[in-house]
């Protein structure tokens, strides 16, 4: 029998209930939830959106930050000089910080320091969703996007502690103070909520690609449905070796790096 983490968490929850002898009801709702989840996983008609970043193509255009600019523009991401307050949905990090340092030991320095885009991995088992006390972040059943509801977030930042990728940012100050122009197509956020990339859920609904994918001049980012064997992303993953960030944590990241 496979004992998933979700079941484990629910079981511990149930034990807590039994231990203190209250909210017996919660056990039943918990049990129902897990039933729904297991039947949901059995049907594979659902999408699982994912992204593949070809670092070789990305390397061809050093100093290119078009994906980041497109995202910042599309989502009203403020610019703060103080690194403590920065908001990042997609940003770049030196290549060797993405993966275990041991693996890049003998890499040439300038290969090591190649700036590589990072963003929310839209995990299969997102720890941020597991810990959120209000359901302000959740995993969308239909396509697997880890969504944010900025109307509900209470700003406790538990999700930031939980995310093993540093993909979440908190609005330490009013974000509008860091914006020169406002894009009316997407709301800004407000002081005191957490935010992150949502694979441009609002653009996908209109049939568009994520802003970063669309903006990449090298076509280094491939976006698609990982559940569809015919999709371009699956074809690429079938024929080449790709890495994911910290897969050993069991979070099931859906952003792949071709190296």
């Amino acid at each position: 029998m496979k004992f998933t983490r979700r079941e484990f968490v629910e079981l511990s929850g149930a034990c807590l209930v039994a231990l203190s002898g209250r909210k017996v009801l919660a056990v039943f709702t918990g049990a129902k939830e897990s039933e729904a989840a297991s039947t949901g996983e059995a049907t594979s008609t659902k999408k699982r959106l994912g992204m593949l970043i070809d670092t070789k193509k990305c390397l061809r255009a050093q100093n290119c930050t078009k994906c980041i600019e497109a995202c910042d523009q599309a989502h009203n991401i403020p610019v703060f000089q103080n690194p403590a307050h920065q908001i990042k949905w997609i940003w770049e990090e030196p290549f060797d910080d993405l993966f275990s340092p041991a693996e890049t030991q003998y890499l040439e320095k300038d290969r090591k320091d190649v700036l590589t885009p990072v963003l929310c991995n839209q995990c299969d088992e997102p720890p941020c969703v597991r810990v959120c006390p209000t359901g302000a972040t959740w995993k969308r059943e239909a396509d697997g996007i880890v969504m944010m509801d900025w109307h509900r977030c209470i700003g406790c930042r538990y999700c930031m502690a939980a995310c093993p990728y540093g993909s979440r940012s908190f609005n330490w100050v009013d974000p509008r103070t860091g914006l020169k122009t406002l894009n009316p197509d997407f709301p800004t956020r407000t002081q005191g909520v957490v935010e992150k990339c949502t694979f441009c859920a609002e653009r996908l609904d209109k049939g568009q690609l994520p802003a970063c994918v669309e903006a990449c001049p090298e076509k280094a980012m491939v976006f698609g449905d990982l559940n569809d064997p015919q999709s371009e992303i699956r074809q690429l993953l079938a024929s080449s070796y790709a890495l994911r960030r910290r897969p050993e944590l069991g979070t099931g990241p859906n952003v792949y790096y071709l190296i």
């Binding site: 406002l182 009316p184 709301p187 956020r189 407000t190």
Partner: peptide
């Protein structure tokens, strides 16, 4: 309403802040 903390009034959008 506090909605305007986030939702953008288009009249404001054109103005350089």
């Amino acid at each position: 309403p506090y909605c305007w903390n986030c939702h953008v009034d288009p009249a404001l959008a054109e103005v350089k802040r």
